[in-house]
Amino acid sequence: MRELFCDSVFFGVLLSVSTYELGVFLKKKYKTAVFNPLLISVLLVIGVLLVFRIDYNVYYEGAKYLSYLLTPATVCLAVPLYEQVELLKRHGKAIVGGIFAGVLTSLVTIFVCASVFGFTHQEYVTLLPKSITTAIGMGVSEELGGMATITVAVIILTGILGNIIAEAVFRLFRIEEAVAKGVALGTSSHAIGTAKAMEIGEVEGAMSSLSIAVAGLMTVAVASVFANLI
């Protein structure tokens, strides 16, 4: 029985999609942020793998086909961006200003936390690119002498967290403008945050997609300056 699951090409994808769908169902029923479909799915999959002692690599062998689509899907984020291009032109200054403020804030808060906790240089630079998209963040981490695999883990954790807390943070900081919500999600929690922004609305989704690219590129430019601080 166990071999059947382990050898199946569809087991990984089936487990991922069905747990996500269960998350969607729970969220619809209880309407609280805790029942975030992505979080539910990740926790349930980890639970199933641990209980049945299935190795992560066995799961990934099938589930990797989901990740395979990530590049073309990210490319497609140009579509909502194109549809909202008028808005982008009108609020260009606010969008770029907001993203830049977010990028600086990210580097500063990580510097402050690292100082408080006494992180080593390697630990510090591993965390520096945590708010940007995985592929850029990995490159930045490697270049600065960080541990790229940990960077990936931290980036994903940041994304899931951003995805879950977005609505609460918007209430807390009284962020009401759709453009501002999109910029906030994309700048703080990259593509996983953008998935949330897409759920909230088209404008939010478009602005969030744009912020992934802009925040990523800005971080590439500024992170090396911050890296020398610890």
Binding site: A101, G102, T105, F117, T158
Partner: peptide, 19 residues
């Protein structure tokens, strides 16, 4: 702790500045 603090603050600041 670093991830939680930084993500909340970054989201807040970038949103507030844009708005």
């Amino acid at each position: 702790i670093t991830v939680v603090v930084s993500t909340i603050v970054v989201m807040g600041v970038s949103g507030v500045v844009t708005q």
